[in-house]
Structure formats: C-alpha cells, structure tokens
Amino acid sequence: MKTVSLTIDGRKIIAEEGTKLLWVALDNGIYIPNLCAIRSSPEPAAACRLCFVEVAGKEAPVTACTETVAEGMVVNTRGKKALRLARSAFELLMASHPVDCAGCPANRSCELQKISGHLKVKLKTKRLRTLLRELPIDDSHPLFTYDPNKCVLCGRCLWVCRQQLGIGVLGFAHRGFQRVVTTFADEPLGQSRCQECGDCIAVCPTGALSFKDSAKPAARAVKI
C-alpha cells in the first residue's frame, strides 16, 4: 500500500494514496460535516456541499469528499471561507426543513443536530426565509414512516436499496426544488417491493425515514 503524508488541522496524518480527504479526516477522528458521502460509492455525489475545507495553495475552498489526498497537503477544516460555505449550505438545508425536534423520532440521533452543533449554526435560521414543501407523509408501510419534508436528499437510502441490496425501491424524481426521494410512480411504500430490511432507515441521517414503534437508531448503523 502506497501512502502519503498530509497535515489536517495541524495534525500529521499518514493516509493511503488515492483516498478522498473526507474519509481520511473522519478515520482520524477529525469531523467534517457531511451528508451525501458514501464510502462504497465509486464516485462522490458531492451534492450536500457541507464538507468544504481549505487546502493550502488553493484559493477557493474544496469539498473534502472529492479531493484526493496528496503528499504534503496541508488542510484546514476550520478555515473562514470554508466555514462560511458550509454554514451557508447548512442554513439553506435547514430553511427548507421543518424543525420540530421534540416531536421527531430522530431527535438526538439526527445528524442535522450534530452538524448544527459542529458548525455552531442554529437549527432555525433567521437570515433566510422558511421555504417548506409541505409534501404528504407516506404512512402506508406497517413498520416505518417516510416524511419527505424532512429529507435532505443525501441519497443514502437509494444507495443501500439499489446498490447494496439490488432492490431499488427508492429513487430520485423531479428537478430543482421539487426533487424528491420517492418510489416508481409515487407508489405508496406499503405497496412497493420493499423487503423490510430497514437499512434505509438506519442510514437516513434525519427523521425522514423512521420506524413507527421504536426510537431511531443513530445513523450509519449499517455500513455504507
């Protein structure tokens, strides 16, 4: 295994060549906020725009999930410019996310709460307008509920369902602000080909997918 050495937030780190910066940081206990990153995916989605970091020698912040580690790389995860982008992206997500933590099954296991703490950004944004989509909640499945309003479109559930289990009940539909995770022809989940493995619920970082009768486990209980 060829390795490279780099510095993240002042710490010298040895990493496998070709790895993406995000995984190297996370594996070394340095948290960088992220939602859409999937380790087993051959290419990063780079969709959530939360993992911005600053790399010495680069003028603009880069997303850690797309940046391959390089010898001598110097990374600052708390740079001003990077934090501004990450905070802005997080605020945008939260401005379109119904904030009702007390009534949410994901309360305290929610990654949005974790990121909020890390970035020091309030869950309820004052700067932006609240733009909710008010989509119907799919309650049709006996075991779990899908609330598309809480979904941050990270794509993890799609990945486990399609790539890991080969079922592919879920997919993205529509464009722009209307983009949503749904089933083919918006079939209710209770009538879909869902095999009730529950992996999608386990990987969901928010309360969008949650069990009906039990508290939501911390996300990433299933390795993706």
Partner: peptide, 10 residues
C-alpha cells in the same frame, strides 16, 4: 436546476 446540490437547489 437539476436539484442535486444544495446551493443550486435551495
């Protein structure tokens, strides 16, 4: 917007 990334979508 295709809706994939946060900045463009939201």
């Amino acid at each position: 917007s295709c809706g994939k990334c946060t900045f463009c979508r939201l």
